[in-house]
Amino acid sequence: MIFSKVIDLYALSRLHKNRSGEFQYTSLPSSIPNVSEREAFYEVNPIDILFDIHNSEKDYKVGRFEFQSLISSGDPTNDHLQGEAYIRNEDAPNIIFVHGWRQDSFDRLKKIFHDRMGNLGWNMYYFTLPYHFQREPEKSLYSGEYMISANIPRTLISVRQSIVDLRALIKWIKDNKKGPVVVIGISLGGFITNLVATLESQIDALVSIFYSNRLSYSIWNTSPGKFIREDLEHHGVNYNDLIKYWRITEPSEGIPKINKDNILLISAKYDQYVHIEDADYLWESWGKPTRYVYNCGHAGIVLNRKKIATDTLLFLQNKIKG
Rank of each mutant, 00 (worst) to 15 (best):
K61E: 12
G63P: 15
R64Y: 13
F65I: 01
E66M: 09
E66V: 00
E66G: 00
F67H: 08
F67L: 02
F67C: 02
Q68E: 14
Q68Y: 12
S69G: 03
S69I: 05
I71L: 10
S73Q: 04
S73I: 10
D75Q: 09
P76K: 00
D79W: 10
D79P: 14
D79G: 05
H80L: 14
L81D: 01
L81S: 03
Q82E: 13
E84L: 11
Y86D: 08
I87W: 10
D91N: 14
A92V: 02
A92C: 04
N94K: 06
F97D: 13
H99P: 06
H99Y: 13
G100T: 04
G100V: 03
R102D: 10
Q103K: 09
D104I: 01
S105K: 13
F106W: 11
F106L: 06
D107I: 05
D107L: 12
R108P: 00
L109C: 04
L109Q: 11
K110F: 09
K110V: 09
K110C: 08
K110Y: 09
K111A: 01
K111N: 11
I112L: 06
F113C: 11
M117A: 05
N119E: 15
N119G: 10
L120S: 06
L120E: 13
N123F: 00
F127K: 02
Y131P: 14
Y131I: 07
Y131S: 03
R135N: 07
R135F: 07
R135T: 10
E136W: 04
E136L: 07
E138V: 02
Y142K: 01
E145P: 15
M147I: 13
M147Y: 09
I148E: 01
A150S: 15
P153G: 08
P153Q: 05
P153S: 11
R154G: 11
R154S: 15
T155L: 12
V159I: 15
R160M: 01
R160I: 03
R160S: 00
S162Q: 03
V164L: 06
D165N: 15
L166D: 02
L166E: 02
L169Q: 10
L169K: 07
I170P: 00
K171G: 09
K171A: 10
I173P: 14
I173A: 04
I173G: 08
K174P: 01
K178D: 11
K178V: 02
G179I: 03
G179P: 12
V182S: 06
V182D: 10
V182L: 06
I184Q: 06
I184D: 11
G189R: 08
G189I: 09
G190W: 12
I192A: 12
I192R: 13
I192H: 13
T193Q: 04
T193F: 01
V196H: 05
T198L: 05
T198P: 15
T198Q: 09
T198N: 05
L199E: 08
E200S: 00
S201Y: 11
Q202M: 07
A205E: 00
L206H: 04
